[in-house]
Amino acid sequence: MKLLHLVATAVTGLLLIVGSLDLAETGDPAAPAATHVSPRYIESGLEETGVENMVTAVLADYRGFDTLGEVTVIFTGAIAVLLILRNGLKGEEDEA
């Protein structure tokens, strides 16, 4: 059993090493990640949304729906913990 875990770890590591062989070097301004979609956020984000912080602009406007999902996840987490833990406290909800 112990061996299995080591194998799983090693396989993941190996896959990761192979996968990172031809990704662009960290910090390369010509990498695909930096040239296809994101320049618009940087170059016209201020103009289109009126917000200096590009991260906020993308977070709240361009990809606002993702953020709705993110808040939903947090909300889900709270409700889920409530569902899991608030068992013994009978009647408390009614009194509140």
Binding site: P29, A33, A34, T35, V37, S38, P39, Y41, I42, E43, S44, G45, L46, M54, V55, A57, V58
Partner: peptide, 11 residues
């Protein structure tokens, strides 16, 4: 604004 001057916000 020049795209190369700022870090990529999307990731």
């Amino acid at each position: 604004l020049d795209a190369a001057q700022y870090a990529n916000p999307l990731p």
